[in-house]
């Protein structure tokens, strides 16, 4: 069992703590949050020790893996953890900007811990099936991809006016990158609230595989209705993933029937929380097997951060922006 801790107990941090508690590959040995009451509630719920300071947690719990969620100075802490040889699974954003994310990801993995990124939306049978269809050439030459991802305002998005882009947007662009590879240029029209915080955005993309892409992100919707939709179209077929894991559908242009993979109520994904469980489980399994090097999600997090930086620059400047590679 992998000794695991969770630092930062926002919504996603709590999901990871619960996932860690029920994962047979994991031994959840501690949690930390600067909000002591919040930490106490979760510690009590899960029956795990809570700590007042990260240093104390590291000293006492001696974790092999640290899940790092929303915390101030998160990137500094991540750097410290990696230096100590602790593997880090970070929620988004991994760092305040793409450059700092790249610095973290570039650490020498021979001597340090491995950095990995959340990207839980990848971990569903529907995504696996869609990837299989697209990579297997079922859709023909790629033409376009559309991704929608929305929810209500998260419980902690702070004062960062770009949180929509660096958090929700990075998840959305990662799904897009799963199917098209790189994104070269973007253009964005956005909507802000009265405090100047971006709340909805429409992002046009030119992808490096020759397809055109688009991402809609919003913090102005709700979670009790569908929150996501992804469609990838090519010269031979179109693939649609409904609501992260509920359906994957293949529409072959020349055939009147469609092929649908529907999430099963037996052994399927029961709730979105299962996606965090599956993501963590894969990470922990890799730690146990010692093959973490194949987890390149930190690099993907940097790429997603670059796309989203270009998108919010576009929204701010009214420009079309090249994505730095």
């Amino acid at each position: 069992m992998v000794r695991t801790v969770v630092l930062g107990l926002d919504e996603v941090g709590r999901e990871y703590a619960r996932a860690s508690k029920r994962d047979s590959a994991s031994n959840l040995v501690g949690v930390y949050d600067p909000d002591r009451a919040r930490a106490h509630r979760l510690g009590k719920e899960l029956g795990v020790p809570i700590f007042d300071r990260p240093e104390e947690l590291l000293e006492v719990a001696k974790p092999q893996v640290c899940v790092l969620s929303a915390l101030e100075g998160k990137e500094t802490l991540a750097s410290d953890l990696l230096s100590r040889g602790i593997h880090v699974l970070s929620t988004l954003p991994v760092a305040p900007d793409a450059e700092q994310c790249e610095k973290l990801a570039a650490r020498d993995s021979e001597k340090n811990g491995i950095l990995a990124a959340d990207f839980h939306l990848r971990f569903t049978p529907a995504m696996d099936k869609a990837r299989e269809w697209v990579s297997g050439g079922e859709i023909g030459s790629p033409l376009f991809i559309n991704m929608n991802l929305w929810r209500d305002v998260p419980d902690r998005h702070g004062d960062n006016p770009y949180h929509l882009f660096v958090s929700l947007g990075a998840h959305g662009v990662d799904v897009i990158r799963q199917f098209v590879g790189g994104v070269e240029r973007v253009q964005c029209f956005g909507v802000r609230d009265k405090n100047g915080i971006w709340t909805s955005a429409q992002i046009n993309m030119m992808c490096s595989n020759g397809a055109v892409g688009h991402l809609t992100i919003s913090y102005e919707m709700v979670t009790h209705h569908p929150i996501a939709r992804c469609e990838i179209a090519g010269s031979r077929a179109r693939v649609v993933i409904e609501n992260v894991y509920e359906d994957a559908t293949l529409y072959v242009h020349e055939r009147p029937e469609k092929l649908v993979l529907t999430n099963s109520i037996f052994g399927g994904i029961p709730q979105l929380s299962e996606t965090w469980f599956r993501r963590l489980h894969e990470f922990l399994t890799s730690v146990q097997k010692g093959n973490l090097a194949r987890d390149t999600t930190a690099v993907d997090a940097c790429a997603a951060a670059r796309v989203m930086e270009a998108a919010y620059h576009s929204a701010e400047r009214g420009s079309v922006e090249e994505v730095e590679s």
Partner: peptide, 19 residues
């Protein structure tokens, strides 16, 4: 095949995929 991004006069944003 095209992706069109719009800003409405109202401030809302729009997107159109056409092929």
């Amino acid at each position: 095949t095209a992706q069109f991004n719009f800003r409405f006069k109202s401030g809302a944003t729009g997107h159109l995929t056409g092929s």
